[in-house]
Structure formats: C-alpha cells, structure tokens
C-alpha cells in the first residue's frame, strides 16, 4: 500500500454509492442552472428534483416483444457501472478497494458500457433505440483506443496500475502539466462514455431520442441519472489521474478532491453545451488518424522522461 492513500472498510461502499448519486445530482443541478432562462419550463438548480419526481410517478412503457431482461440490465447498468468505477477511485486519502490494477478495472468498467448501452437500445424492440445502440458502438470503437493510450500515460509515469500510486506519483507536479494531450483525450472520452455532447448521437433528436426514445418512468430516470453519474465519476478519475487527486494546501485531501471533481464536472458540462454533435461515422477518422497518434506520441514522450529520470 502506498503512502497517502489507505483502503477503508468495505462498508463505506454504501457511502460511496450515495456520494456518486449525489455528485450525479449536482451535475444535473448545474445542467439545470445552465439551461435556466426567463420563461423556460423545468430549468434551474431544482429541475432534476422536479424531473425525477415526474419520472418516478410516470408509468413504465411496455412494448410488443420487448427483450425485457436485456433492457432492464442495460438501463440499470449505467449507474451500477458508475458505482463500480468509483470503487477503485481514491477519494482524497481513502479508497474502497486498493486494487493493484485499478486503472485496468476502470477501463474494463467503461467497456461494460459498450454492452449496456447496446442492450438498452436493443431491449425495447423498436427501431430508433436500436439505431441509437449501434451508434454508441460506432462511437465506442472510435474513442476507446485513444482512451486506452491516454490511460497508459499516467500509468507509465507512475510505473504502476494502482490508482494510489498514480496519485502519489503526482507529488509536486501534476500529470496534466506534462501530459496535456492525454488529459484532453481523457476528458473527451469521459464525455463520450457518459453519452454527452459532442458524443450524444446515440440519444440524438434525429432518432427521437435514440436509446431514450422508448424509455419512460423509472427506466428513463435511471438512464439520465446514469449519464450524470458516469460524467461525475469520469471527472473524478480525471482528477485522480491528471490533477493531483486530493493534493492541495491547508484543506483536507477529500475537500480538494471533491472541489476539483465538481469543478471539472461543471467545466465539462459547460463545454459540451458549446459543441455540436458529432456524427458517429465522422468520429472514426478524427479519433484514429489524429487523437490516436497524438496520444501515442504523448506516451512515448512520457516514457522517455521516465527513463531519463531513472
């Protein structure tokens, strides 16, 4: 176990799950505040409360020959994956599971989304959600490789796949300073796997909402909450991997971690409002012909620095 981060009792997992949902709610509240303008229906900080209450009272839609099992698994899976990711995320000085391969665990969980979003699209037995599910896989094929190599950069620098070691390796100098490309690619990937713009084609308006088209009631609530939970946890990982985790003066580590995470989450929420939606077929070239070589060069640079430092 590394200095600085200690593993806490598994009972805290309950608190972690609640914290993930609270962070997701904070993201939704920020989003609501950003949408607020005079005369707007359902906007402002309390919009998610109103929307959540409305969806909880709404009847769940049933469709002919729906694959209910896969649909439910896909819909409920989004928040579950967010919580499973958080299991290896150092929250200031505490972590639920100090897995030696925590970074690979995070990667495996974000690959889970390939299956879950597709299942959420397949389940209703309707055309628009199915097209949405396929669109997500097309996007995922494009963003996953740059994401994997962006994850490699901090792991190479820290010489470890353990999240605690990666946080400890940023003592003095945050990784974002000398691996900005990996940081940007990672942030873009967070927007991508949490189905936010510019990567929201699976939920786009031209598909009548795509994966969301047939989801109503608690199903819709879980999908929307899952998106925000994934964005929150993804921001948390960006902080742990690139922004020094809980390091900062005076205040305790968890306060710094939380402040950085919420700030990055809000920045991502603001940024995505100013970006147009990317068509899935247009992302492949940008991701593989531009982002992938840039990330590989970043990893190569990091490797040279690590070898030179000895």
């Amino acid at each position: 176990m590394s200095a600085g981060v200690e593993q806490v009792s598994p009972v805290w997992a309950v608190v972690a799950a609640i914290a993930v949902l609270a962070a997701a709610f904070a993201g939704a509240a920020v989003d609501g505040a950003l949408q607020a303008r005079p005369g707007a229906r359902r906007a402002g900080m309390l919009a998610p409360v109103a929307e959540g209450a409305r969806l909880l009272r709404q009847r769940r839609r049933t469709l002919v020959a729906a694959d209910t099992l896969l649909w439910r698994v896909g819909v409920a899976g989004l928040p579950v994956v967010a919580v499973l990711m958080a299991a290896v995320l150092p929250f200031g000085r505490w972590v639920i599971s100090d897995l030696p391969v925590g970074l690979v665990w995070f990667n495996a969980m974000d690959v889970m989304l390939w299956a879950l979003v597709w299942m959420a699209g397949w389940g209703p037995n309707a055309a628009y959600p199915l097209v949405g599910g396929y669109r997500f896989l097309a996007l995922a094929l494009a963003y996953e490789l740059p994401l994997m190599f962006a994850l490699t950069a901090p792991a190479v620098a820290a010489g470890s796949l353990r999240m605690a070691d990666i946080v400890a390796g940023q003592d003095g100098l945050w990784y974002v300073v000398w691996m900005p490309v990996a940081f940007l690619v990672f942030c873009a990937s967070v927007l991508a796997f949490s189905l936010h713009r510019p990567f929201d084609a699976p939920l786009a308006r031209d598909l009548a909402g795509g994966v969301l088209a047939e989801a109503s009631g608690v199903d819709r609530l879980l999908l929307l909450a899952g998106r925000h939970a994934l964005l929150a946890v993804g921001s948390g990982f960006a902080v742990a991997l690139f922004l020094g985790g809980g390091s900062g003066p005076l205040l305790p580590a968890w306060v710094w971690f939380l402040a950085k995470t919420l700030l990055l989450q809000s920045v991502l929420l603001v940024v995505r409002r100013h970006l147009p939606s990317v068509r899935p077929q247009a992302l492949m070239a940008a991701a593989w012909a531009v982002a992938l070589p840039a990330t590989l060069l970043q990893v190569a640079g990091v490797a040279v620095v690590v070898v030179a430092r000895g």
Binding site: W105, N107, V111, M112, A115
Partner: peptide, 16 residues
C-alpha cells in the same frame, strides 16, 4: 488481478 480484469474487459468488448 491483471488477467482477471483483462479477461472481463476483452470478453465484454468482444461480445459487443
């Protein structure tokens, strides 16, 4: 750990 997590990662991706 590594083989276990990578098995999960690869297989889910492959099946998708």
């Amino acid at each position: 750990d590594y083989i276990g997590v990578v098995t999960i990662l690869m297989m889910v991706m492959e099946m998708a």
